[in-house]
């Protein structure tokens, strides 16, 4: 409901500067709405998992995981209003999309890592033979 009102308010024709300010305000309000959604943590976890695929070392994510734990502990879990079904759909779909993206990135990365390891082994064998 809030999101719809925001969209209606921001659609009025005003000056360029005023409209920019309104758009920024709308984005800030939308950010707050998204951050208060119960699936926001799942979204962030999916985001982090997608980023983790590209990192070889798990220890490189210490700072992010700490921030994540803080956010989880301090987060007040507000129940969503029944009128925000569009946001529910979006959050679910985006979480799913990110999880599928992680799988899609992970698959070729794993294949390629296996190939690289095998090639290293072959090089080692070549060195030992000669």
């Amino acid at each position: 409901m809030e999101a719809r009102q925001i969209g209606e308010n921001g659609s009025g024709r005003k000056g360029v500067e005023e409209s920019d300010v309104e758009i920024k305000e709308n984005e800030e309000v939308l950010k707050k709405i998204i951050a208060s959604h119960p699936l926001y943590e799942v979204l962030i976890q999916s985001h982090i998992n997608c980023l983790k695929v590209g990192l070889s070392e798990a220890g490189e994510f210490d700072a992010t995981s700490e921030a994540w734990n803080k956010l989880v502990n301090s987060k007040s879990k507000a129940t969503p209003s029944p009128n925000t079904s569009e946001l529910d759909h979006f959050m679910e779909a985006y979480c799913m999309a990110l999880s599928k993206l992680r799988e899609a990135i992970e698959e070729p990365t794993k294949e390629t890592n296996a190939f690289i390891r095998a090639t290293y082994l072959q090089l080692k064998e070549l060195n030992e033979l000669n």
């Binding site: 939308l30 998204i34 979204l43 962030i44 985001h47 921030a67 979006f90 985006y94």
Partner: peptide, 15 residues
């Protein structure tokens, strides 16, 4: 979705 850009900004700000 109008939530897409704010969500992406939030995710990038977070991590």
């Amino acid at each position: 979705s109008k939530f897409l850009v704010p969500a992406q900004v939030l995710l990038n700000e977070f991590c």
